[in-house]
């Protein structure tokens, strides 16, 4: 059963509840969400501010823990892991792209890309890394430091790093939030291409319908609940759905 699920689902959460604070000030950021992210697909999580989309991603990626319910990466239940195993899981099976690039300023581009592999002490797959470098188009920048790159270039480095260790799933948190539209378009195209050409899985949180339209599927959250899913989205359809969400029913 688990193996079958693992083959088709890269990550999933079941009855996920996340409560911040306690008593009168308690906030239910996630209120019983169950969702799975199919392998080999590019999924976008959308929702208005405070809908719980970032929390969902953090919990699904093992950066945060759920109050109740469970989060799985492939066949692994994250709640059973201690900090050391969780760290190893993030290192080996999950990739991250953050809004604020988050490269290590002292490392070169090449070193930033292989950082998760280096931390694991594994040589990785040199051919794959080499191919990645070409995909993100940074071959001539490999020995530069992050400070010498533009924002778009830095985010492309972050994308390459996220895929470097053949992760089960890459989580991207508003990856275009700090970029101009052209650079943003490049990064999104890059994510989409990588999923389609190499069969990787990407889960992206965004509030931008144009960005979300790059995904294969969009899941909508509101008030900590899953409210809709949309296959083959277009910006206009997403925008309409979002407007509906923001109007109190």
């Amino acid at each position: 059963m688990t193996t079958v699920t693992a083959a088709r689902t890269a990550a999933r959460v079941v009855d996920a509840v996340k409560v911040y604070g306690a008593g009168d000030t308690a906030v239910r950021a996630l209120d019983g969400v169950s969702v799975d992210f199919p392998a080999g697909r590019f999924t976008a999580i959308m929702g208005p501010s405070g809908s719980g989309k970032s929390t969902l991603m953090h919990c699904a990626a093992g950066l945060d823990t759920l109050t109740s319910g469970s989060a799985w990466i492939g066949g692994t239940d994250l709640s059973t892991l201690d900090d050391r195993r969780l760290t190893a899981l993030r290192r080996d099976r999950v990739g991250f792209v953050f809004q604020a690039f988050n490269l290590v300023p002292t490392l070169t581009v090449a070193e930033n890309i292989t950082l998760p592999l280096d931390l694991a002490g594994s040589p990785g797959d040199p051919e794959w890394i080499d191919a990645l470098v070409d995909v993100v188009g940074l071959r001539d920048r490999l020995h530069h430091r992050p400070a010498q790159l533009s924002g778009g270039q830095q985010q492309r480095v972050a994308v390459a790093r996220a895929f470097a260790s053949h992760p089960d799933v890459v989580f991207a948190d508003e990856p275009t939030g700090n970029l101009d539209s052209r650079s943003g378009e490049e990064v999104l195209g890059l994510l989409g291409r990588t999923v389609r050409h190499t069969g990787r899985t990407v889960v992206m949180v965004t509030h931008d319908p144009v960005a979300a339209a790059h995904a294969d599927e969009v899941v909508f959250l509101a008030d900590g609940r899953l409210v809709d899913r949309m296959e083959n989205p277009t910006p206009d359809r997403i925008l309409d759905r979002m407007k509906a969400l923001e109007v109190p029913s």
Binding site: D83, R84, T87, R90, R91, F96, V104, L119
Partner: peptide, 16 residues
């Protein structure tokens, strides 16, 4: 802080 957080996120263990 942020850089350390990133390192932890991409898989640096506490001991490392």
């Amino acid at each position: 802080t942020r850089e350390l957080g990133l390192l932890r996120a991409v898989g640096q263990t506490r001991a490392q």
